[in-house]
């Protein structure tokens, strides 16, 4: 048995964090469920408290688990093989995120190429239109729904265009930060990563501003029919991902200030930067299919 040099694969000891995380998700699910149910009926109570408790527990779990993980990594327990496990795990996680967005993009494509035209009488659906909503005309963006809700479409020029540029630039700065890390140029690394975080925050700020503009000036709301639905769910979930991405980058920033990561060993940084590039790509898709087309 010609066993070559084999670096031991680190199998962690028992850990308390997963079960804490399970309780956290349980509380979040029950809390969020009740919270939503409270919006329609007086019967339900306590959603807010349970949800906050759950989020708090999740926070404790994240801090504890990551601390555990970072300590192990810093004490050199991790092999290259384990690093590959983490990288592959992250890649597949991002793939699952892609498929999550795919569901909403699918809804968008179906609504604009099939559902709305059919309601307007396309294909063999003349009678659908005639019997249900004879005055309805198919259009996209759907600024006037079959039941008469009207709204205004969000243009692509101006804010959305600026936001696109901001995110694309942030993808580049994030890449520069990664290159600096690999060259072990710490001050450049801090600068580029800091710039990325600022751009991320700027994007989020502008996105909030755009939402206010949509609600106040355009009358474009979550209830404005399927155009508003796809607009807000796609940009909203994207915004949540940018928020998470920014938090990840902030944690990485703090770790860099503490001197973590080496040119060879920086899985967390790589995962964070992959995640950031992923939210940027999703935005480009959004910009094309939600705003421009």
């Amino acid at each position: 048995m010609a066993q070559q040099e084999y670096q031991k694969y680190y199998v962690p000891e028992q850990s308390v964090w997963p079960i804490v995380g399970a309780v956290a998700l349980f509380l979040i699910a029950v809390g969020a469920g009740l919270f939503v149910m409270q919006t329609v009926s007086e019967t339900w109570k306590g959603g807010g408290i349970v949800l906050s408790l759950g989020l708090l527990t999740l926070l404790v779990m994240l801090v504890g688990w990551f601390k555990n993980q970072i300590d192990e990594s810093m004490s050199g327990l991790y092999s290259d093989q384990l690093g590959r496990s983490y990288r592959q795990g992250m890649a597949w996680f991002i793939f699952s995120e892609v498929m999550f967005f795919a569901a909403f993009f699918g809804a968008l494509f179906y609504a604009r190429t099939i559902a709305v035209p059919w309601l307007g009488g396309a294909s063999n659906n003349a009678m659908t239109n005639e019997v249900l909503w004879p005055t309805f005309e198919a259009m996209w963006p759907l600024t006037s729904t079959p039941d008469g809700t009207t709204t205004t479409a969000m243009g692509w020029a101006g804010l959305p265009l600026y936001n696109t540029i901001i995110l694309m630039v942030s993808s580049v700065t994030c890449h520069f930060a990664h290159v600096s890390l690999e060259k072990n140029e710490r001050s450049k690394l801090t600068m580029w990563l800091g710039a990325t975080i600022l751009l991320g925050c700027l994007f989020l700020g502008l996105q909030v501003y755009e939402y206010i503009h949509a609600y106040r000036d355009l009358g474009l709301t979550l209830q404005s029919g399927v155009y508003g639905n796809t607009f807000f769910l796609l940009t909203g979930f994207h915004g949540m991902h940018v928020t998470l991405g920014t938090i990840i980058l902030m944690v990485l920033f703090l770790r860099i200030l503490k001197g973590h990561f080496t040119p060879e060993n920086h899985f967390a940084f790589q995962a964070g930067s992959w995640y950031w590039h992923f939210v940027d790509v999703v935005w480009v898709m959004l910009f094309i299919f939600v705003y421009i087309l």
Binding site: V36, M37, T39, V40, S96, E97, V98, M99, F100, A102, A103, F104, G106, A107, Y110, A111, I114, A115, V116, W118, L119, L132, L142, T145, P146, D147, T149, L222, Q223, G225, V226, Y227, G228, N229, T230, L233
Partner: peptide
């Protein structure tokens, strides 16, 4: 596909509780 299921239940949630109309023809959905 599990994320697609997550998307489906999410749209059910917003249709039922937040007034979206992904699955409601009156709002242009189906």
């Amino acid at each position: 596909v599990m994320p697609v299921l997550a998307g489906a239940v999410t749209m059910v949630l917003t249709d039922k509780f937040f007034g979206t109309s992904f699955f409601d023809a009156a709002g242009g959905g189906d």
